[in-house]
Design a protein around this nucleic acid. Structure first.
Lengths: 206, 206, 206, 206
DNA sequence: TATGAATGAGACTTCATTCAT
DNA sequence: GATGAATGAAGTCTCATTCAT
C-alpha cells in the first residue's frame, strides 16, 4: 500500500499532509477530478514526492481508507468499553450516533471514501470494505440488546441501521447551518430508535 | 397516421438506445470513466452519432436525468390517484415503497443519476434536483396522513424517508439474489412505518 | 472540377448560389474554417447537394478560382480593346487600375482566392495560377508603352506592378470608409506611374 | 555565474526549438494545418512538452509574434542609430530595405506571422499588430526626410511603402535562385525611391 | 531524497464525406 | 435529385507516471 514506511519525522509529516489534502480534494471533486498535481500543490510538495510515498493515485486513496478504518476501529473500541453503554440501549444509541456523527461531520474525507460513487472498481471496493467493517462492529455492539437473535439477523439489522445513519448524516452535512445539521441528527436518533424498539422488546421477551 | 417519418423514427430509436446504454455505463463506472466511445459502441453507433444528438457528454447525462424526472413524475401521479391510497396510511406506504422499489431496482441508470458521487458540479446538481423533486412529491403525498403538520416539518420528514428508502434500496440492489433484495425491501417498509407511526398518531390526535 | 454540368436552370442557380456563399465564407474565415455545412446552410441547401455539384471541398474552391479567372480574362479583354487605351500610357494606367480596383473591392471572394495564405498546397497553387494569369495579361498590356523591352524584363516589371497593386488594394479594402479607400487607390496610381515613368521614357528613347 | 540552472537552460532550449520549428511549419502550411503533433515531432519532443510551455496552439503563435516584434524593434533601433542614415535619404532607404530584406528572406516564420491569411481572428490580429508596429517605425524613420509633412500623411506614405516592400519581398522569397531574389530587391529599392522622390523634393522646398 | 520537466496514451470533439430514404 | 443523419479519422488537450538532475 505504502511504498515505504517513513522512518524520519519529516517524511511522516509530509505523508500525513499529503493524505490530509488528498482527503479534502477527493471529498470536494471526487477521485477522478483530483489530480496528483493538485494534491502535491495542496500538500506543498512535488508530484515526485507523492510518488515517493505512494506507487500511484489509487494507493493514496487506499491509504486514506486504511487510515479511516483505523479510526473507525478506535471509535468502536471506545464505544464498547464506555461505561455509559451499559445504562440502557437508548443511551447506548445516543452515544453511538453522537460519536459517529462527530466523526462523519468533521472529516469530509471520511465521507468521500465511504460514499463510494467513485469510478474505479477498486475505489468502490475500498468503500464497501469500510462499510462492512462498520456494520460488523455495529452488529457486535447490538448483541447485548438483542439477546438470542442470531448473527445473520443481527447483521441485517445492523446494515439497515448503518446505511440509514450514513445516508442521513450525509444530509446533515449538507445543511447550511450547524443547527440544521443538529436537527437532522435528532431525526436520525429517532428513526433508529423506533426501528430497533420492537426488536429489542421482542428479544427481551424471548 | 404516423407522426414521425421513418427517418426520424430510426433516429429516435437510436437516441433511446444511446440513452439506455449510457445509463448502464454511467451506473457501472460513473460519469468520468464512461467514455463517449464506450457509449457509442454499446449503442452500436459511432461517436459522431452521439454528438448528433447531444452536444457533449454532459448533455447525455442531463437527458438521462430529464428522462428519469419524467418517469418519477408519472410514478407519483399514479400513486396520487391510486384508489388504494385512501385505504390506510400503512397500505399507502406499502404501495409507494413497492412502486419505488420496482423502479429503483429495475433501472441501474436511475440509481446512477441520483446517486451522485460524480465529479462535475453540474452532474451532481442534476442528482440533487432529482432528489428534491422526489422529496417534494413525497411530502405532498404525506399530507393526508399528517393533517395539521406544517409544510416545513413535513419536508424534513419526507427527506428522512426518501433518503432512507433510497439508501436501503441501494443495499437491496446489491443483494446477489432477488429474494435477498425482497427481504431488504421488507425491512425498508418496517423502518419507514415505525418512523412515521408516532407522527401519524400524534397528528390525528391534534 | 465540377461533377456535372447542370443542364437545368434550377441546378445552375443553386450551384451559383453555393459558389457565391462559399466566396463570402472563404473570404471571411479562410478555407479551413469554412465548413461544407456552413456553405450549404448559407446557400439554403443541404450538404448532399453541395456534393452533388462538387466532389469535395477543394473543388468548390477550384470552381471559384476558375470563375474569377474567367472574369479576369474578360476584364483584360475589355481593357485591351478599350479605345481610351491608345490615348496615353498614363490614361491606360488610370483605366487599368480603376477597373481592377472595382473588381477587387467589390468581391471579397476574389481577394480570398488570390490572397493565398491558405492551408493546402492546392489552394495556394490556385491563387498563384490566378496571379500569374493577371501578370501575363499585364505584361502584354504594357507592350506598346515599353517598345523594345524584352519579355523577361517586362514580366518582372509586370510582377512588381501587379503585386504592388494587389497588396495596396488589400489595404484599400480594409479602410473603414469608401473615401479612405479612394485615397489609397490614388496613392496606388501614383506609385505605379512613378515606378513606370523612367522605364517608359527610356524605352521611347531607345 | 550562470543565471539559469542547467535544468532551466535545457527547458529554454527546448522552447526555442519548438518555436523555431513551429515558425517553419506555420510558414509552410498555415496555422490550421499545422498540428501540435507535427510541431512536437519537428522539435523532437512530445505534445505534452509543447503544452508545458504553451497553454494551446494559439499561444505558440502568439509567442512567435512576440518574438518577431522584439526583433523588429531591435532592427528599427539599429536603423535609427545607424551613422549612415544621416548621409542621404537614398542611402537610408538602401540601408532600411537591405536590413529588412535580410530579415524577411531569412526567416520563413516572420513571413508566416505577418502574412496573415490565417483562420482565426486572433491570429490575424497578431499579424495586423506586427504590421502596424513596422509601419509606425517607418513613419518615424521618414520624419527627417519629410520635414513639415503632417503625421497623418506620413503614415499613409509609410503604409504604402511597407505594404509594397512586404508584398515584393514575398515575391523575392519565392524566387528559386538567390540572384533572382536579389534582382527583385533591386526593383523594390527602385519603386520605393521613385515613389518617395517627389515627396522628399516637395517637402524640402516647403 | 526532492523536484518538476518530459512523456504519451487516451479522452473529447469536429467535420469532410458517404449513403439510406 | 435532394436531404440530412451516420460514420470515423484526426486534432486538441489532460494528466498519471517516469526520470534526469
Amino acid at each position: 500500500m505504502q511504498r515505504r514506511s517513513p522512518v524520519q519525522a519529516r517524511s511522516r509529516e509530509r505523508m500525513e499532509r499529503i493524505l490530509d489534502e488528498a482527503a479534502t480534494l477527493f471529498a470536494g471533486a471526487g477521485f477522478d477530478a483530483t489530480t496528483i498535481e493538485a494534491i502535491a500543490a495542496a500538500a506543498q510538495t512535488s508530484v515526485g514526492s507523492v510518488y515517493q510515498f505512494f506507487p500511484n493515485k489509487q494507493a493514496v486513496f487506499d491509504a486514506l481508507a486504511t487510515r479511516y478504518a483505523a479510526q473507525v476501529e478506535a471509535l468502536f473500541a471506545a464505544l464498547a468499553t464506555s461505561p455509559a453503554r451499559a445504562a440502557s440501549w437508548s443511551t447506548a444509541i445516543d452515544l453511538a450516533i453522537g460519536a459517529f456523527a462527530t466523526f462523519h461531520r468533521g472529516d469530509p474525507g471520511f465521507r468521500a471514501v465511504w460514499l463510494g460513487g467513485h469510478t474505479s472498481q477498486r475505489v468502490r471496493d475500498e468503500g464497501v470494505a469500510l462499510g462492512r467493517r462498520i456494520t460488523d462492529h455495529t452488529a457486535r455492539l447490538m448483541k447485548p440488546f438483542l439477546p438470542g437473535v442470531p448473527l445473520a439477523r443481527r447483521r441485517v439489522v445492523a446494515t439497515v441501521v448503518v446505511e440509514t445513519v450514513n445516508a442521513l448524516l450525509m444530509v446533515a452535512a449538507q445543511q447550511p447551518t450547524a443547527s440544521g445539521g443538529d436537527r437532522v441528527v435528532d431525526e436520525i436518533t429517532a428513526i433508529v430508535k423506533r426501528y430497533l424498539a420492537p426488536l429489542v422488546r421482542e428479544a427481551r421477551r424471548a
